[in-house]
């Protein structure tokens, strides 16, 4: 066991995957010599050589497009988009190509690759370093979409994504890289070095895609969350004193609907929280699934707490960010509903 941050857990997953399978190649902007602007690929070039870990030009379209060709050849590219906000030039390659090559060629060609990208706000990154574009991926047939919330899951889910035979979008909430952040930006930062989820197994292990985790058992209401919002939910629950069940979805597609259903059948209430904008956000899909399958178990309307439908602001970051207070108020409203 080693105490790891989410960054070192992700770096460690790369390291073990490259050691295990020489078809794994890692590249992206600043990823090679420097080891990534967030250091998630630190030391890999030195250890595995420039042939398997290298710097790419500032061309997300080129990074994803070339990785698709490498995957078609038989390699397993694990590529980094420096910020999720930069992925749009690559969107055609992700949606029209990576996601569809298996289907359109009847598995003549496949596209096993992982597209990593730091997402989410809370770092004063403004509109180009803060977005959570997960719904733009969950809407696409052929993609899997993953968002871990802690070092143990980050390592296991990344290794599962690398083993997966299909393209996986791996979203890393950058506000969680160094410690669990619960939305109380005025308080001192908590570090993974003092957290049980920072104690990571040294060996290779897999956290299967498509499995949610129940972070807290409760009877009164189910909170569906992922990424940074898992800790916002924990804070909201603690502050309201409500006996809520908190679920960390971990994988959005494929979704662990069974864990969600089991919980809501027990609690009869559901609050969904995500950092992305509200309209057509992943919360809309979750709310629709809950009412389709569990309508007669519900005792209150399904509620959503999300980022507002505005560009991610700079100075007004904490007005945008779904706070424990906003979530807490919605939890109380749902209990009274």
């Amino acid at each position: 066991m080693t105490q790891m941050t989410m960054i070192s857990a992700i770096q460690n997953a790369h390291d073990l995957a490259m050691e295990k399978d020489d078809r794994v190649v890692v590249f992206g902007e600043d990823v090679g010599f420097f080891g990534g602007v967030f250091r998630c690929t630190a030391g890999l070039q030195e250890k595995y050589g420039k042939n398997r870990c290298f710097d790419a030009p500032i061309s997300e379209n080129g990074i994803v497009g070339s990785a698709i060709g490498m995957a078609a050849y038989g390699l397993k590219p694990v590529i980094e988009i420096q910020f999720a906000d930069y992925m749009y030039p690559a969107y055609d390659q992700i949606v029209s190509e990576a996601a569809r090559i298996r289907h359109r060629s009847n598995a003549d060609f496949t596209c096993p690759m992982v597209i990593r990208m730091p997402c989410g706000g809370g770092i004063f990154g403004g509109q180009t370093h803060s977005q959570s574009p997960e719904a733009l991926f969950t809407h696409v047939a052929g993609l899997k979409t993953v968002m871990p919330s802690n070092p143990i899951d980050a390592k296991g889910l990344l290794l599962a994504a690398i083993e997966d035979p299909d393209p996986v979008v791996f979203l890393e909430p950058k506000r969680l890289y160094n410690g669990p952040f619960d939305g109380h930006h005025e308080k001192p930062i908590v570090s993974w070095s003092k957290h049980e989820l920072g104690v990571v197994e040294d060996d290779y292990y897999i956290t299967p895609l498509g499995t949610a985790a129940v972070k807290r058992s409760g009877e009164a209401v189910t909170i569906l969350s992922y990424g940074t919002m898992v800790y916002v939910a924990e804070a909201a629950v603690e502050e309201t004193g409500v006996d809520a069940e908190i679920i960390d979805l971990r994988t959005l597609v494929p979704l662990d609907l069974e864990t969600i259903a089991t919980s809501i059948k027990k609690t009869g209430r559901c609050v969904i929280v995500h950092e992305a904008t509200k309209t057509s956000g992943f919360g809309a899909e979750l709310a629709a699934l809950v009412q389709e399958d569990l309508f007669y178990h519900l005792e209150a309307p399904v509620a959503r707490v999300t980022g507002w439908d505005t560009p991610y602001p700079h100075a007004q970051e904490w007005d945008y960010f779904p706070s424990p207070q906003r979530l807490g108020e919605k939890i109380i409203e749902t209990l009274e509903g």
Partner: peptide, 23 residues
């Protein structure tokens, strides 16, 4: 596999060629 979207396969071909060199 032909996409139908124009140009996408050009950079994929470069990636495939890079893979040949990597291996």
């Amino acid at each position: 596999s032909i996409s139908g979207n124009l140009g996408t396969q050009y950079i994929q071909a470069v990636g495939w060629a890079m893979a040949s060199a990597i291996r």
